[in-house]
């Protein structure tokens, strides 16, 4: 029996890795499971039956409001942001050819964070209210992410982009941006400081349908584009020499991939704040499950990223109730032990 399933249509054909297909389906079901559990659990417990009723439009007053206005958008944002961050990390790990690369290490998230904090500080008045609509915050964050990525790219350019230079410049700029972010927090009122800290940690708290509607187009466009480029990623991972000898235009490919990665990370961070470590762990686990061929690995890391953020948010809402802990704290708390585990595994 073959390892692959063949899919043919009139103009296209492709091979699907059976194992990856099965794992993807399992992960998808798992994700759907957590989503439905997550809708019911929280400050107000709603039974699965009631949840189902509400989703099909036959629910009753209070439950409807909680589910449709608060929990559903929050869960959808968690899924999209988690998947985007994980995919962005998968791209960076392929391009830089190092399993420790991720959007938070490369300063893309910190760039967005700096822009967001500057926005909060600059537009807060004496009575702690924003002078402009909070709806512009994601715009500022996306601009910050792209600005940072562009700066890193330009500064790392020296007859082409060497991955090593890219990551080192990224790490340096990240450290500097963190200092500037702290400066912005100090300059602003203390109320803005706590707002900014929550944002920097990353949370899906208070997500609404407007957020979902803004993030959805990014997600729906970028993910198919990325899957189309998974072949480019496979070639990039072979290294510059091999890729060039295969006729691949290395720097052009790298540019497009970095652009997609920045757009994915930037759009996610814009709505959730800088949730860390998802872009690092998601692709890592995916590679362990299905190997490093990107066609199989990308969907799996997407699902894993979504699951990670869903679980982190669920834990943040319920474990220390009534206190809400930002999801970013939990992703960092999962990320750390996971890395120590990897460490011992590699040594043993």
């Amino acid at each position: 029996m073959s390892k692959y399933v063949t899919v043919r249509s009139k103009s296209h054909s492709m091979l699907l890795d059976k194992k990856a297909l099965i794992i993807s389906i399992v992960l998808f079901l798992f994700m759907a499971g957590i989503m439905s559990v997550s809708i019911g659990i929280g400050e107000l417990y709603i039974s699965p039956l009631e949840v189902l009723k509400s989703l099909t439009g036959t629910g009753s007053g209070m439950n409807d409001v909680v589910i449709q206005q608060f929990r559903l958008p929050r869960i959808l944002i968690a899924v999209m942001a988690g998947a985007s961050l994980s995919l962005a990390g998968a791209i960076l790990q392929g391009v830089i050819r190092n399993p420790l690369a991720s959007p938070d290490m490369l300063g893309i998230s910190t760039g967005a964070g700096f822009a967001a904090v500057t926005f909060i500080t600059m537009f807060s008045n004496q009575s702690n209210n924003l002078k402009v609509s909070i709806g512009y915050l994601p715009v500022a964050a996306v601009l910050g992410a792209f600005g940072m990525a562009a700066l890193i790219y330009i500064l790392a350019w020296k007859r082409g982009i060497a991955p090593v230079r890219l990551i080192l410049i990224g790490v340096g700029l990240m450290t500097a941006t963190q200092a500037l972010t702290t400066l912005m927090i100090i300059l602003g009122p203390i109320y803005a400081a706590s707002q900014a800290t929550i944002w920097l940690t990353g949370t899906v708290y208070a997500a609404n349908w407007q957020d979902v509607n803004s993030l959805l187009p990014w997600f729906l466009i970028l993910v198919p584009v990325l899957l189309f480029f998974s072949r480019t990623l496979n070639i990039q991972e072979l290294g510059d020499e091999v890729a060039t000898s295969l006729g691949h235009s290395v720097h052009k490919g790298r540019f497009v991939l970095l652009l997609i990665s920045t757009a994915l990370a930037g759009s996610a961070v814009a709505f959730t704040g800088a949730i860390g470590f998802v872009g690092l762990i998601g692709p890592h686990i995916a590679r362990r499950l299905v190997g490093s061929s990107f066609g199989a690995m990308l969907p799996v890391s997407g699902f894993l990223g979504a699951i990670l953020v869903l679980l982190a948010d669920l834990a943040g809402r319920t474990l220390f109730s009534p206190l809400e802990v930002p999801a970013g704290v939990f992703t960092a708390a999962i990320g750390a032990p996971y890395f120590i585990y990897l460490l011992f595994k590699n040594h043993g």
């Binding site: 190092n98 420790l100 690369a101 938070d104 290490m105 990551i167 080192l168 790490v171 990240m174 450290t175 963190q178 800290t197 920097l200 940690t201 990353g202 860390g276 470590f277 690092l280 802990v325 930002p326 970013g328 704290v329 992703t331 960092a332 708390a333 990320g335 750390a336 890395f339």
Partner: peptide, 17 residues
């Protein structure tokens, strides 16, 4: 350097939390 960045990021997010 990357390992350092990972550890720094980890402690930074835990501190923020």
């Amino acid at each position: 350097t990357l390992a350092g960045a990972v550890i720094a990021a980890m402690f930074a997010s835990l501190t923020q939390g």
